[in-house]
Design a protein around this nucleic acid. Structure first.
Lengths: 253, 253
DNA sequence: ACCTGAACACCGTTCAAGT
DNA sequence: ACCTGAACACCGTTCAAGT
């Protein structure tokens, strides 16, 4: 239980910290640790070695300080991970103006996926740490609400549509880039392929008949994740399915 | 790196183990540990204390054995967690026959959500451990493929539709039941409410105007998760949005 | 085959002490 | 305010030894 005051990481506070380098020292050569420096180092650590390799102590090693120095800025391991997600998802909100709400949603889906693609090892966190994360940018949420409002949703249907967008966007990307089991991957891959090759047509006709199309291209039937075998076609289809569903949902009820 | 032989947990192997209680001893009083006993104990441990409390050593304590005895059956912590997800999601496949593919999908969505509701603390795992989990039941996959085939999908569009179903179903439930930050929850809840109450209408008009509807009912704007504040209405809407989208996707391209 | 028991190299977080 | 340094109660997994 920390009683120490903790600043929130928001777009504003982050910009403020950046410009407030004490004594006018050049930005790149800060002698003291920032909260943003620590979070950035944590993200680098995860990018390099995955969540398995991540630890407060490793981040400290990367920064050349004692583990307790990291703890001072990060408050807790959980909070640090939440901040890492926020950092990785910065700038997902589509910039500029848009002609249609469908176009805005398509861009949001694509930009979100690109953000996860840049930091695939955070995939297991986005479903977990975003939900109840006060550090998530309100601009992103307001942008989604605006596009859905423009589509004609209001009241409880606006809430439902918003939840549907987040469920869809997080569900696809989290699974697409989820890590493979680390225990000797190549061996596991071989097992997976053998198992799929041995599927009996009698019991699983559709699986067997479509195995060539499904293998490594369908969730739970893959031996590589989105970093090595991206599901581009399925993602595009998913966006169109979802938007078509929203268009329909708009006109019923 | 274990070279020891590891059995796969499938519907078949599980049934086999069950019926093969050595020496005809009554089922409840096995003296030796099973793989299924260990997995069940792990799930109980997670149900009780969440993923934070989970450890191989705690499971061992629960079973009254040394940590290394658990390790012998579980191969690794990661594999144990994967098996836990498989156990929690057993029987999600809708039973019996169905009049329409839409009805089958609706049931699948509901049954999946009920399974997660029964074990909400596994929510962070379902997006991570299902994707590439060879222990996931092929019956579940075949069932989904059958309903989508019945809807008229085949080839690459069948693959896309299947991926869309899993993305949707996992995305909603994983987020709905994702755990709140453990660090003194009530204090965090207060912070969250204050932050949402203080949203400026000038910058975030839609957020501000709909805060009463959104608060605790929309992803990233909640201070409770699905166990305490279920998102029933949004879930029902989500299902209809998604199915309507599939119906549309069927007739284009 | 299955478990004990000790051991190894970690881990997050605390607390007191320095500056 | 920010960091060192030692310490605490853990952790997953190994290995050798028992039965």
């Amino acid at each position: 239980m920390k009683s120490r005051p903790q600043k929130r990481v928001t777009a504003e506070s982050r910009a403020k910290e950046k410009s407030a380098s004490p004594g006018g020292r050049p930005k790149g050569t800060e002698k003291t640790l920032n909260r943003q420096t620590v979070v950035a180092a944590a993200l680098e650590e995860i990018d390099r070695g995955g969540l398995e390799a991540f630890s407060v102590r490793n981040v400290a090693k990367r920064l050349g300080v004692y583990p307790t120095a990291v703890a001072w800025h990060a408050a807790s391991r959980g909070q640090l991970l939440a901040d890492v997600v926020t950092l990785a998802l910065v700038d997902v909100r589509p910039p500029g103006f848009h002609d249609s709400w469908q176009g805005y949603l398509r861009q949001t889906f694509h930009r979100f996926r690109e953000a996860v693609r840049r930091h695939p090892n955070i995939a297991p966190l986005i479903g977990t740490q975003m939900l109840a994360n006060p550090t998530v940018e309100l601009e992103f949420i307001e942008g989604l609400l605006a596009s859905l409002h423009h589509a004609g949703f209001s009241g409880t249907r606006l809430v439902a549509a918003y939840n549907a967008v987040l469920a869809a966007i997080v569900g696809f990307t989290a699974q697409e880039f989820a890590p493979l089991p680390p225990e000797q991957t190549s061996q596991w891959q071989e097992e997976m392929r053998e198992r799929l090759a041995g599927v009996q047509r009698v019991r699983y006709p559709l699986l067997a008949d479509n195995m060539k199309l499904l293998g490594n291209k369908a969730f739970t039937l893959r031996w590589q994740n989105g970093s090595e075998a991206p599901l581009d076609a399925s993602f595009e289809a998913f966006i169109e399915i979802f938007i078509a569903g929203l268009e329909r949902f708009r006109s019923v009820g």
